[in-house]
């Protein structure tokens, strides 16, 4: 946001326009987004210097493809985090949607565009179950989604007998392997579109602003006429739909819908689902969304993992490093907000 081009006055009435511009610049430099961009540039240079092939076309392609899925997973969590809630079932919902897509194509014989839409709709429906149950019971979504994670995944395993669907149209695998300009995965475009949609939603639509308001102060939002319960359900539905999109992207990457694509109960997605939004500056207490930050956060995590693998740092250290990164991000964000609050810049 830019300041109006008017000279400001200090307590004594003196014009103090210049310090204000400094304040704006300082505020920008203190944003998560700027910090993440700086870290991405720094780490990219460091990895290029320290490893062979970090900027090779194949590595850039695979990095972008993994980042695209991770960004989508991060966005799926972010849209619930802004309500002050959590969606631990992102992975389970994603796998359910992917398996549904595979079933509809391979067993039912539906055209793939209809199967994809149905899978996304199923994701939204499972999200609705999470949201509705959470709102109706008044329990924190942490509890609800912890339970539904097991329920959704268990039902999926029961219905599919843990069998994969791999007789998918070649267009799926072709899309997952496609290279744009030799180095970019088109999956990045899908994530970019989702991010643009969310940016539009939160900045330019009434329902998006109601989501942020309901997340920041549910009681105040309720008193101002917002149906907070309904808004929370919308957020969970959106989360389910985005989780389904992430899973469908993985189907394209693997060329098959497989029950183990997100690990046992879909838990493999959880760390990255939290890392993206938290690194990006989305408040765990709700009320603030950073779509760009989530994208940058997820990209940074993916890049770090790729770089650490190339460095041949002990494979088992990578997970520990990501956990430390999450902790450091939370602490740095707290420090940043304290700094801003002390200078009345928050």
């Amino acid at each position: 946001m830019s300041y109006p081009d008017l000279p400001a006055k200090g307590p004594s009435g003196d014009i103090v326009g210049k310090p204000r511009r400094n304040t704006a610049a300082t505020r920008f430099y203190l944003t998560n987004e700027f910090g993440l961009i700086a870290l991405i540039v720094l780490f990219a240079l460091a990895f290029q210097f320290a490893t062979d092939g970090f900027f090779s076309p194949f590595n850039l392609f695979s990095l972008g493809r993994i980042a695209a899925v991770n960004i989508m997973i991060g966005l799926a969590m972010m849209v619930v985090v802004i309500t002050g809630g959590l969606n631990l079932a992102v992975g389970a919902i994603g796998v359910c949607a992917a398996m549904t897509c595979g079933y509809l194509i391979e067993v039912v014989g539906l055209p793939w565009p209809i199967a994809i839409l149905s899978a996304v709709a199923l994701g939204a429906m499972l999200g609705f179950i999470n949201g509705w149950t959470s709102v109706r019971t008044g329990l924190h979504s942490f509890i609800i989604t912890l339970a539904t994670m097991s329920i959704f995944f268990g039902v999926m395993i029961f219905l599919t007998r843990a069998e994969s669907y791999r007789a998918l149209p070649p267009v799926f695998a072709a899309f997952g392997r496609m290279k744009l300009l030799g180095i970019f995965s088109p999956l990045l475009l899908v994530s970019l579109m989702a991010a643009l949609f969310l940016g539009y939603l939160y900045n330019l639509t009434a329902v998006g602003r109601e989501m942020l308001a309901a997340g920041a102060k549910p009681e105040a939002a309720e008193m101002s006429g917002i149906n907070v319960g309904r808004i929370f359900i919308y957020c969970h539905m959106l989360s389910g739909a985005l989780a389904a999109c992430a899973a469908l992207m993985l189907v394209a990457r693997n060329g098959a819908a497989i029950p183990s694509m997100a690990g046992q109960l879909g838990q493999d997605w959880l760390l990255i689902a939290f890392l993206g939004p938290v690194l990006g500056g989305t408040l765990l207490t709700g009320g603030k969304a950073s779509v760009l930050g989530t994208c940058l956060g997820a990209f940074l995590v993916t890049m770090l993992t790729s770089g650490l693998l190339l460095l041949q740092l002990g494979d088992f250290w990578i997970q520990s490093f990501l956990g430390l990164l999450l902790l450091a991000a939370v602490l740095m964000d707290k420090t940043r907000r304290t700094f801003l609050a002390r200078r009345n810049m928050a």
């Binding site: 590595n59 493999d268 190339l310 494979d315």
Partner: peptide, 23 residues
């Protein structure tokens, strides 16, 4: 001998892609 950190398909895939990049 290169071991993925966990029994996860995505981790193995990522490791394999990285190993290809490493030559």
């Amino acid at each position: 001998y290169k071991v993925p950190q966990k029994w996860e398909l995505s981790q193995q895939n990522q490791l394999l892609e990285s190993l290809l990049t490493q030559g």
